[in-house]
């Protein structure tokens, strides 16, 4: 009898240990490296610079004075491909290290946040006082999300998307593969902005009374907007260009025939009457180009220039593939 009880207790003990270990393990999946750091001068807006090579970064403005950083290792999902690739590991469990090597340094109101690991995917979430400028960069495996921040925002993401909501201030953003989406609450008067992407859409919502000079260029996509655009034919007007210089350059570029685009299919024979010499030149060059099997998509500085609400600082929107969508906040 006694023996049975003892055995039972033993079993119970083992079960408890297993439970605890299990609990510990599952808790570890969610455990984060956490740091709460104040700015050295909390009364002035600080700057947060954060970068991760492999992972994602989320920045949220909150009603507080300190910067709260949480970094956690994303659980690695083992794909069939990987199992096939590593046949030897079949039937074994992957052991994941779960410390991120989070590092937070503060100096004169500039906070630098980084993680030491680039092999593991690390998701960082940062809470900052509303009035904070941020500079964020991510290379792969995740998005950058920034919400409710009031300041200057510099952000780059090589692989993933950039998603900015409820922001106030000025933005300089570059996404290589992903898309850029930004919804502004307000913009800093006088500061220029720039949104560039190689492959993604650029989808920006500005307050309807935003005053800006727009420079827009989409290599293969289209530009859409519900703003009333005041198209500027001579971009030197108010576009911070040295007009004489640009005019000379334009003339010069026109001389080199790569400036022209899209290709103009020449009618044969070319109608000469009533056309300016320049138009004629266009046709001639077009014909020559087509004869050589060339396609004129190379040109420099071929932007759409436009003002909204009378004009203001220059906002650049430029991508290669993907569309540009510029919306009025409702």
């Amino acid at each position: 009898m006694k023996k049975t009880i003892k055995k039972n207790i033993q079993l119970l003990g083992i079960a408890l240990v297993i439970l605890m270990v299990g609990g510990f393990l599952s808790a570890q999946d969610k455990a984060a490296d956490k740091a709460t750091v104040p700015f050295s001068n909390p009364n002035e807006p600080g700057l947060v610079k954060a970068g991760v090579r492999n992972g994602s970064i989320t920045v949220t403005g909150y009603n507080g004075k300190e910067v709260v950083v949480e970094a956690r290792v994303r659980e690695k999902l083992i794909t069939e491909e990987e199992i096939e690739r590593n046949e030897k590991a079949r039937g074994l469990k992957l052991v994941q290290v779960d410390t991120t090597g989070l590092r937070v340094m503060e100096d004169e109101n500039v906070m630098r946040i980084s993680v030491s690991s680039s092999k593991q995917t690390v998701d960082i979430s940062i809470r900052v006082p509303y009035a904070t400028s941020v500079s964020i960069s991510v290379h792969e495996n995740g998005d950058v999300r920034i919400e409710n921040v009031n300041g200057e925002i510099e952000v780059s993401n090589h692989e993933g998307n950039i998603d900015l909501t409820g922001i106030s201030g000025a933005v300089v953003a570059h996404a290589y593969e992903g898309e850029i989406k930004a919804v502004f609450k307000s913009v800093s008067p006088g500061l220029p902005m720039s949104f560039t992407s190689w492959q993604g859409d650029i989808d920006i919502t500005l307050p309807s009374d935003t005053k800006a000079n727009l420079k827009m260029k989409s290599g293969q996509g289209e530009v859409y907007t519900d703003f009333a655009l005041q198209i500027v034919r001579n971009p030197d007007e108010g576009f911070d260009f040295n007009s004489d210089k640009l005019k000379n350059l334009k003339r010069e570029s026109l001389r080199s025939f790569y400036y022209l685009s899209p290709p103009k299919v020449p009618d044969a024979p070319v109608v000469v009457s009533g056309e300016s010499l320049e138009d004629l030149a266009v046709d001639f060059r077009g014909a020559r180009g087509l004869a050589l099997g060339e396609y004129y998509d190379i040109s420099f500085n071929r932007y759409i220039y436009a003002r909204i609400n009378g004009g203001g600082p220059v906002y650049v929107f430029s991508n290669n593939e993907g569309d540009i969508l510029l919306r009025k906040a409702k």
């Binding site: 200057e152 933005v171 300089v172 800093s188 220029p192 902005m193 720039s194 576009f239 911070d240």
Partner: peptide, 13 residues
């Protein structure tokens, strides 16, 4: 700040 650097470059136009 990137915005300010951008402003500087724009100004040189």
């Amino acid at each position: 700040s990137a915005s300010e650097r951008l402003q500087g470059v724009n100004m040189s136009y």
